[in-house]
Amino acid sequence: MSDNRSSMGRFGSDEREAVTFSFDGQEIAARNGDTVAMALWAVGEATLRRSSREGRPRGVLCNMGICYECLVLVDGVAVRACTTVVRAGMKVERGGTPGE
């Protein structure tokens, strides 16, 4: 199920190379230098994990590496989406409970 929202996107001009990665099996077009969190936000994906006890949607809170709310799995390893720079072919999945 996608939470895709068309109002999120990019502005200004962007001449960077395109980089493609997968998010829960879906192909995402990013730009070289994007973090996982920003690449996903730019295509309208704001839900990055589910909360530990109630399974509620969570996403970017601080966007600067402090809060760990944006934990996702990159190639099976839990990382912060807001500090992880995208690589071509990276396999990203929605995260679960932090600390697991």
């Binding site: 929202r5 990019r10 502005f11 920003m38 936000w41 730019a42 809170l61 966007n63």
Partner: peptide
């Protein structure tokens, strides 16, 4: 805790650091 609710700083990073439109 709803997605789309962030810190003020997060939105500045989004716009000024990445050229991403928050909404």
């Amino acid at each position: 805790t709803l997605p789309g609710v962030t810190t003020a700083g997060a939105l500045q990073v989004m716009v000024r650091g990445f050229g991403v439109k928050p909404g």
